[in-house]
C-alpha cells in the first residue's frame, strides 16, 4: 500500500433483511484525485456512500481514511477527520439563511461549546468574522453571494446543490463525497459545477463522485469504479471503462 492512498475500503457488506445492498465491495482512491463511482440504479452506490461515512454501520469490512480506520468512529467524528458527504437529494437547512448554512460547517468552532458561548465571546467574535469572510468568498465564487441573507429554502434545486457543495468546503475537507451533483441541474449549471470541482481539486481536495451523467463522469474523473448489484464490476481509467464490455452489459442489458 502506498502512502498516496487517501481512502480505501475493503470487503464492505451491508444487508437490509434478505437484500444484500452492498456485498463485499472494495474502493480505493488516491490523494488529490477525482474518482467516479457509477453503476445502474440499485447497484448500491448510495449505500456504499452511507457505509463510508458511517451513516450505516457496515456488517463486514473496513474503511481506512488517511491511514486511520474510521469504520468504528461515530458519524460526526468522520467529518472531523476531513471526509464530508453531500446527499443525493440536496439537503439544506431551509429555515436558516444561506450564510448560516455555510457557517455551520467549520469544525471545532469555539462557540459550539455551551460554556464558552458566555465566557469567551471575544474569541467567538473573531472566529465568526473569519468564517464569515471565508463563507462569503466561497459563496461569491459559486455566485450565491447575493443570496447570502435569504432563507436557504428559497433557493432553486440547482442552487441548493451548489450551496451543499459550497458548505462542505467550509469544513476544510480532504475528501468530499458527492452524491449525484448533476442530477436535476440544468446543463449550464452542470458545467459550472464541473468547473468548480476541477478548481477545488487543483487546490488539493479529493473527490469521490456518484453520477449518472456520463459526460460529467468521463470528463472529470481520473479513475472510475463500477458497482453492479452491490459488488465491484470493474475499475479503471475512463477509456478502459468506456470500452469494458461488462460495464456496457450491466448498463444496457443483454
Amino acid at each position: 500500500m502506498t502512502k498516496n492512498i487517501l481512502l480505501s475500503a475493503k470487503g464492505l457488506s451491508k444487508s437490509f433483511g434478505g437484500i444484500k445492498a452492498v456485498n463485499n465491495a472494495t474502493i480505493e482512491l488516491k490523494s488529490g484525485s477525482i474518482t467516479g463511482l457509477i453503476g445502474p440504479n440499485g447497484a448500491g452506490k448510495t449505500t456504499l456512500f452511507n457505509l463510508l461515512a458511517n451513516f450505516y454501520t457496515p456488517d463486514r469490512g473496513e474503511v481506512i481514511f488517511a491511514s486511520k480506520p474510521i469504520h468504528q468512529l461515530p458519524t460526526h467524528k468522520i467529518a472531523r477527520q476531513g471526509m464530508v458527504r453531500t446527499f443525493q437529494v440536496a439537503r439544506v437547512l431551509s429555515r436558516l439563511s444561506v450564510l448560516e448554512n455555510m457557517l455551520l460547517a467549520p469544525q471545532k468552532q469555539t462557540g459550539e461549546n455551551i460554556i464558552k458561548v458566555w465566557l469567551d465571546r471575544k474569541t467567538i467574535k473573531k472566529e465568526e468574522k473569519l468564517n464569515r469572510e471565508k463563507a462569503m468568498s466561497i459563496l461569491e465564487s459559486v455566485g450565491l453571494d447575493s443570496k447570502a441573507k435569504d432563507y436557504a429554502g428559497a433557493l432553486s434545486g440547482g442552487q441548493r446543490k451548489l450551496l451543499e457543495i459550497a458548505r462542505t468546503l467550509m469544513s476544510d475537507p480532504k475528501l468530499i463525497l458527492l452524491d449525484e451533483p448533476a442530477a436535476g441541474v440544468n446543463p449550464t449549471l452542470i458545467n459550472q459545477i464541473c468547473d468548480h470541482i476541477v478548481n477545488w481539486n487543483k487546490a488539493g481536495i479529493s473527490f469521490l463522485i456518484i453520477e449518472h451523467n456520463m459526460d460529467v463522469i468521463m470528463s472529470l474523473c481520473d479513475r472510475i469504479w463500477v458497482l453492479a448489484e452491490g459488488s465491484n464490476l470493474a475499475d479503471g481509467t475512463p477509456e478502459e471503462i468506456q470500452n469494458n464490455p461488462h460495464v456496457l452489459e450491466a448498463y444496457l442489458g443483454q
Partner: peptide, 25 residues
Amino acid sequence: ILVRSPWGRVIKAIREDEEIARALG
C-alpha cells in the same frame, strides 16, 4: 447570546435536519 452563537446555529440546524448536522461533524 446563546441562540445567536454558533451553538445556537447547531441547535437550529438539528431542528431542521439532524442528518446534515451529523454529516458536518
